[in-house]
Nucleic acid binder design. Structure first.
Lengths: 238, 238
DNA sequence: GCGCACTACGTACGCTGTACGTAACTAGGA
DNA sequence: TCCTAGTTACGTACAGCGTACGTAGTGCGC
């Protein structure tokens, strides 16, 4: 028996195998992949220990020899999708490189709509996450500011990506278990917003609401936000 | 009987009372307050329909006459803490005003550590949230950019606040149900990070790690990030 | 004053995470 | 070489969850 620890534990610190006993049937990567597959196909709420075990073809409780708590499964999942980052050779143009990284993060989140929801609760730094951070620092090599400032920039960019993409995606993930479509839900919410704004209680909001004609180009807004953040860090602006 | 809707519904669009039948024993505000109280004292995971009902002194299923789904309870909670925003008179200095708004949001999240976790999944715009947005727009009156850009700025600032504060807070909220303290968990995580960095696999990360001597002043980092974002939107910088 | 729309809420179901106990297995020490 | 201690595998069981459904009681509008 594993013996649940009464002391904090980082899953990445515990070795994947310990030698004695029967050969483990799966690797951590197998488990993470199974969980990711379920989350992608059936939504994050379908990621239960039972379902993951079934996907792997083992008993539910067997999972607990690999993953002490469900929260750790979440950490595995986050790190697993982190592996999808392409660690390209830095070009020397840090702004272009970081833009590319951000776009890639956004693409990953679009592929795995549950990522933003998990990011709010998961704090871990798995190997792939660390590799990605290292890659970002490599891209920022040409930028002449202290390392601490670079870390801040990375954090800020990631924050912006998460925030913006999460807003795009939230409805997708939520409506997965609902008997109506994303479009229907959005329509209802917009109708409600319109009705509220029409009461006259929020004049400035109303102005902003009516000023904007036609649909917003979310992609453009997103890119603009990134550019602005990078502007703020650029010692030799534009 | 209420009859669960098979169509999307915004809780704020449904009227609080309908006239016929026995007088409702509570208001939405009562319910939100009870849920917030539980979340503050016992953590977000303790916010179950049963516990909220018990806190109010009614049967579990009675809640469903007020709140069709649990997710709507979350919307009520988010909007309830939104009421804690002080809607001060704009000073004419939009940067100072927005900084104040951001600091206040941060303070609210510190008081209610579960807020960031909920924000990741909740998308609603309750009355207090709308009021706060209107207030932000009022603060941004002196800023000479299109309304759409102002909205982008507000979203970006809120995103930064959420991201930064969530990182501070995540451990607090998580360790609530754990048999160890925040400090213990952080120590373990830092030790793990240090050990990873020491392997030499992440040279740039290692440099950044060792360069920074002494603890980071999170408050300063936070304020700096806000200033930078505002710089990016300021037509007449610094 | 009757009826109906509404609230209140007990019961029940299927699901969750996971504590615990047992059986099978294998690497290291004698 | 065999033994045994440390592991893995996993069935069972339990407390707790969201909520569908049915029933009982209430009070406004006709």
């Amino acid at each position: 028996m594993a013996g649940r620890a009464a002391v904090p534990e980082v899953i990445w610190a515990r070795p994947e195998r310990t030698g004695r006993g029967p050969k483990p049937a799966f690797t951590r990567a197998d488990i993470a992949a199974a969980a990711v597959r379920i989350a992608d196909e059936r939504g994050l709420d379908a990621v239960s220990m039972r379902h993951v075990a079934a996907e792997l073809g083992c008993g539910t409780m067997s999972l607990y020899s690999y993953v002490p708590r469900k929260e750790d499964l979440y950490e595995l999942m986050i790190d697993a999708v982190g592996a999808e980052h392409e660690l390209f050779e830095p070009t020397g143009d840090w702004r272009a490189d970081m833009l590319r990284n951000a776009e890639e993060t956004r693409a990953i989140m679009r592929r795995h709509t549950w990522v933003p929801r998990l990011m709010a609760g998961v704090h871990g730094f798995g190997p792939h996450t660390l590799r990605y951070l290292e890659h970002c620092l490599a891209c920022l090599e040409p930028l002449d500011v202290p390392a601490g400032t670079k870390t801040e920039l990375i954090a800020l960019l990631n924050g912006v990506v998460t925030t913006y993409t999460a807003n795009d995606i939230a409805t997708v993930e939520r409506t997965r278990s609902m008997p109506w479509s994303v479009e229907e839900e959005n329509a209802v919410r917009m109708a409600y917003l319109g009705s509220q704004v029409a009461t006259g209680a929020y004049p400035r909001l109303a102005a902003a609401f009516t000023e904007q004609s036609g649909p917003v180009d979310l992609e453009a807004v997103f890119r603009r936000a990134l550019e602005r953040v990078m502007d703020a860090f650029d010692p030799e602006p534009r």
